[in-house]
């Protein structure tokens, strides 16, 4: 058996989806923050990049539509990937992102392992924190979409719902955005990239492939399943080419650096904010 040293983890479409999410999410965060902090120096600076309060709002709305479009395309893609003849395995099997009892067990096991009790769980393809990341976004986008749509069309909304639901929509839209942004920057960026084993950059989502040797440490059960079923050969991948690697290093660090700046400024300026 000839040895496979790298395998594909994310297809080109997965990576494009993720890139689209990064771009729309960043644009929405920045224009949204400009609106929320509009009475502070930071807010006015942001708004001036987008041509002022009104045009920042228009860009925010368009970015929101784009993100929703990406979400719909993603759902359609997922539906085509499901194998309907063996839907049970397809939905609850190891290649699925749907949480199962195993994830809760692994969470407990891993917390114990943090304190040096027992062994680290041998993860399958998706770990519980990866599933959490996925579902957080999965519910976040429709919530932001619906409440956002209500605020774009308040008059039309009030034909179907009482007008005071707009008060609720505004609150939910803001709270969910604050949760999503702080989670992404603090947990997703910091822990994803700045651990000793992933530093300086966790490249998987950009290169699309992982080294089998590395992955055998983190996701032992996945690698074992792949080599048992012989899928390893099909997933064989080449390492990323140098120019592409340079490109995503620059891009990744630009996003991470602006993310940290963003969260710092947001926390600092939150003392001057008016919540209305």
């Amino acid at each position: 058996m000839n040895t496979v040293t790298r395998i594909t983890r994310f297809t080109v479409i997965d990576r494009i989806t993720h890139l689209g999410l990064i771009l729309t999410f960043s644009l929405l965060s920045i224009t949204g923050a400009g609106r929320l902090y509009f009475n502070t120096d930071w807010g006015t600076a942001i708004l001036s990049w987008f041509g002022g309060y009104t045009s920042a709002t228009i860009i925010h709305i368009w970015a929101g539509w784009l993100m929703t479009l990406g979400f719909i395309v993603h759902i359609l893609l997922v539906l085509t990937r499901l194998d309907w003849r063996s839907w049970k395995l397809s939905l609850f099997g190891p290649d699925s992102l749907i949480p199962t009892a195993r994830d809760f067990r692994e969470f407990g096991q891993r917390v114990l392992w943090f304190f040096g009790i027992g062994n680290a769980p041998k993860f399958e393809r998706w770990t519980y924190w990866e599933k959490f990341d996925y579902w957080a976004v999965f519910w976040g986008i429709p919530l932001l979409f619906i409440t956002g749509l209500m605020l774009i069309y308040p008059i039309e909304t009030s034909r179907f719902l009482p007008g005071w639901t707009l008060n609720i929509a505004l609150l939910l839209h803001r709270a969910e955005a604050i949760l999503a942004i702080s989670y992404i920057i603090v947990i997703h960026l910091l822990v994803g990239h700045f651990r000793r084993s992933t530093f300086p950059l966790n490249e998987t989502m950009f290169s699309g492939s992982v080294s089998v040797e590395e992955e055998a440490k983190e996701k032992a059960d996945w690698i074992e399943r792949l080599s048992k079923t012989g899928q390893m050969q099909q997933l064989k991948a080449e390492p990323p080419v140098t120019w592409y690697r340079r490109l995503y290093f620059v891009f990744g660090y630009a996003v991470i650096a602006s993310g940290f700046y963003f969260i710092g400024a947001a926390i600092y300026y939150s003392q001057f904010i008016v919540l209305h």
Binding site: P154, I155, S158, R159, G163, W164, L166, N167
Partner: peptide, 16 residues
């Protein structure tokens, strides 16, 4: 200001 405002719309609580 809000063209087409309905009684339902006016239940929005201005002084939140």
């Amino acid at each position: 200001c809000h063209q087409g405002a309905t009684p339902s719309f006016a239940t929005f609580v201005v002084h939140t």
